[in-house]
């Protein structure tokens, strides 16, 4: 039988994504293509691998990359160590009535990022940890402080959804409190951990304001380098480094998706 659709049904639901599609092409896809173009051309617009060779033969650039990955990993780990127990604690309805406490923990995000980092620098200097004597520590503290809310929120959402009966089942089957934690609570919170890592690791890799401000320029992260290259009109080198960043983020996205997907279905909690 022929279905008699009214005229306006010609407007299909998928048309609704046209505005975003345009945005995607204009501000994400085309810029990426431009980056790729600049990364593999020379000043005359001819294909070239000068930037690639230049990057891998310049020890200081590779070194900055390694440092950045290292700092990002450390920040993520520290954030998890602080944020995980905190989120678990906050997810207890008795402690966090009406979710007031969680709002307090997320409140720093409401303040301008540059301003906040400036304040952190002053505070740290007052405490004796300044860019002059401990640039690495100062940067790390700044990073953790800045990205902690991004760890707490997804973990908190996951913790709220913890299945109490699964935890009880584990205890019932003979798991002591420690075993209950790593055999039931931890696996259940994997989706939260994955999104927390994604939301911390990637931005820390590329951020440069924090390290710049807090280490007084002593620690250069990958983001700083890219910025510097563009500032010095070295568009091809800058673009190539941006591309490397893109690849690293792509790889980490791929890895976390794989993990999160296998561990729990529909696990994305943010």
């Amino acid at each position: 039988m022929k279905s008699s659709k009214p005229k306006f049904a010609l407007f299909k639901r998928k048309y609704l994504c046209i505005p975003y599609g345009l945005f995607l092409v204009m501000f994400i896809i085309i810029p990426i293509l431009i980056i790729v173009y600049y990364a593999f051309t020379d000043d005359n617009g001819m294909p070239s691998i000068n930037a690639l060779v230049g990057f891998f033969t310049n020890w200081s650039k590779v070194n900055v990359l390694i440092t950045s990955v290292f700092i990002a990993l450390q920040t993520t780990l520290l954030c998890l160590l602080i944020g995980y127990p905190l989120a678990y604690f906050l997810a207890d309805k008795k402690v966090n009535k009406n979710a007031v406490l969680i709002t307090l923990f997320v409140a720093p995000m409401w303040i301008n990022f540059v301003l906040r980092t400036g304040a952190t620098r002053d505070l740290l200097t007052w405490m004796g940890i300044n860019g002059g004597n401990m640039p690495y520590l100062a940067t790390l503290i700044g990073m953790v402080q800045n990205y902690l809310p991004f760890v707490i929120l997804p973990l908190y959402t996951t913790m709220l959804k913890l299945d109490k009966s699964q935890i009880e089942a584990a205890a019932d089957l003979g798991a002591n409190p420690f075993q209950v934690f790593y055999k039931s609570i931890l696996p259940q919170s994997v989706p939260g951990i994955v999104s927390a890592c994604t939301m911390t690791f990637m931005p820390t890799m590329s951020s440069y304001v924090i390290s710049d401000t807090l280490s007084e320029g002593k620690i250069t992260l990958f983001g700083n380098y890219i910025y510097l290259d563009f500032a010095n009109n070295l568009w091809h080198d800058g673009s190539f480094m941006a591309l490397i960043m893109l690849v690293i983020i792509g790889i980490s996205m791929f890895l976390t998706r794989e993990k999160g997907g296998a561990e729990q279905k529909g696990g994305k909690s943010w």
Binding site: S165, E168, A169, D172, L173, G174, V180, P187
Partner: peptide, 16 residues
């Protein structure tokens, strides 16, 4: 509970 020789079948199964 983990020291009791008792096991439970839960209302909503509570499988992992």
């Amino acid at each position: 509970p983990y020291k009791r020789p008792v096991n439970t079948v839960f209302q909503r199964y509570a499988l992992f």
